[in-house]
C-alpha cells in the first residue's frame, strides 16, 4: 500500500508540529510521575540485596550507608551452615510442593474443563453451575475441617497434605473451560473423523491450543503455592519439612533483632529463583495474565 502513495516529504529542519510538541510535553509529565515511582517500587529490591551483603556492625548504625563499606558474603555462608536453619532443605520442599501442585492442578483442572466444555453427559451443566456457587464461599471456611481431615489421614508433615487440598480449584476449571469453549469445533471434528479417541483429542489437539490459558494458570498456581503461608504453616511443623516462605518467618523470628543481614540473605535466596523466572518469561507472563483478566 505504501508503494502507491507518494513519498512523504522529509525535512529534518522542519519545525515539529504542534501535536508532536504537545505530546512530548505530556510525556515529560509522565516521566516526572513514572521515574520517581520506579525508584519507590524498585528500591526495596535493591535494599534487600544490599543489606544481604552488609555486615551486622554496619546495619545497626547511623547514618545509614546505601552501599556497605565492607561488603561480605558472610550472611550467605551463615545461612547455609547454621544448624538451626535448613534453608537448602526448605528450598527443595518448596520446589517439590510448588511443582507437584502445579502439575496436578493443570492435569486435573484441564481434564475437568474439557469435560465440562466439550463432552456431554447427563447433569453436566447443572454440576458446572453449582461449582460456581462454591467460588463464592471463601476458602477460610474449609481450613479447620480440612486440617482435621489431613490429620486423620496421618498427612501432617507430608507433601501430599500440603498439595492435595489445593489441587481442585474451581477457578482453574472455570478459566480453562472458557479457553476450550473459544476453540473452533471443526478441529476436533476432523480428528474424530480420523478416528482419534476423546483422550487423544484432548491431549494432542485441544490442550496445545489453549497454551495462553495454561501459562496463566501455571503462573497463578506456582506462585500461589510457592508464596503460600497459612496452610504450610499449620500442616508442616517439623523443622526439615518447612517451606521457604514458612522458614523465612522462622528466620526472621530468630534473627530479626540482631542479624538483619542474615534475614535479608534468606529473603534474597527465596526470591531470586522466582524473580529470575519472572525476568526470563516476563513478556509471556504479562500477556497471558492480561488475557486471563479479560476472560475471567
Amino acid at each position: 500500500m505504501s508503494a502507491t502513495l507518494p513519498a512523504q516529504p522529509v525535512r529534518s529542519d522542519a519545525p515539529r508540529s504542534p501535536i508532536r510538541r504537545r505530546r512530548s510535553r505530556a510525556s515529560a509529565w509522565l516521566y516526572a510521575f513514572l521515574a520517581p515511582l520506579a525508584v519507590v517500587i524498585g528500591f526495596p529490591f535493591y535494599w534487600m540485596l544490599a543489606l544481604s551483603i552488609t555486615p551486622p556492625n554496619e546495619i545497626y548504625r547511623w547514618p545509614l550507608r546505601f552501599f556497605p563499606a565492607t561488603p561480605t558474603l558472610d550472611n550467605y555462608v551463615q545461612l547455609f551452615t547454621r544448624q538451626d536453619l535448613q534453608i537448602g532443605r526448605w528450598f527443595i520442599n518448596s520446589v517439590v510442593i510448588a511443582t507437584s501442585e502445579t502439575v496436578l492442578t493443570l492435569l486435573v483442572c484441564s481434564l475437568a474443563a474439557y469435560g465440562f466444555a466439550r463432552l456431554e453427559f447427563p447433569g453436566r451443566d447443572q454440576i458446572f453451575y453449582s461449582l460456581l456457587f462454591a467460588l463464592m464461599v471463601p476458602t477460610q471456611v474449609t481450613l479447620i475441617p480440612t486440617f482435621l481431615l489431613i490429620r486423620m489421614f496421618g498427612w501432617l508433615d507430608s507433601y501430599q497434605g500440603v498439595v492435595l487440598p489445593g489441587v481442585a480449584g474451581v477457578f482453574g476449571v472455570f478459566l480453562l473451560r472458557q479457553f476450550f469453549l473459544s476453540l473452533p469445533r471443526e478441529l476436533e471434528e476432523a480428528a474424530v473423523i480420523d478416528g482419534a479417541s476423546r483422550l487423544r483429542i484432548y491431549w494432542r489437539i485441544a490442550l496445545p491450543l489453549i497454551r495462553a490459558g495454561l501459562v496463566a494458570l501455571v503462573i497463578f498456581v506456582f506462585l500461589g503455592s510457592w508464596n503460600n503461608l497459612f496452610w504450610p504453616l499449620i500442616v508442616l511443623n517439623r523443622l526439615e519439612m518447612r517451606t521457604l516462605t514458612v522458614g523465612l518467618t522462622v528466620l526472621r523470628g530468630a534473627y530479626g533483632a540482631d542479624q538483619m543481614g542474615l534475614v535479608m540473605a534468606g529473603a534474597a535466596f527465596a526470591s531470586i529463583p522466582v524473580l529470575v523466572f519472572y525476568a526470563v518469561f516476563q513478556r509471556q507472563i504479562l500477556q497471558s495474565i492480561t488475557l486471563t483478566g479479560l476472560k475471567a
Binding site: 526495596p44 508464596n227 523465612l248 524473580l275 519472572y278 525476568a279
Partner: peptide
C-alpha cells in the same frame, strides 16, 4: 515500567514483610 511494576507481585508475603518491615 510495566515489568518493574508487576515485579513485587511475584514476591512472597514473607519476603515483602521482611523488606518493607525493615
Amino acid at each position: 515500567f510495566r515489568v518493574l511494576f508487576y515485579a513485587p507481585v511475584v514476591l512472597s508475603v514473607a519476603v515483602m514483610g521482611i523488606i518493607l518491615g525493615w
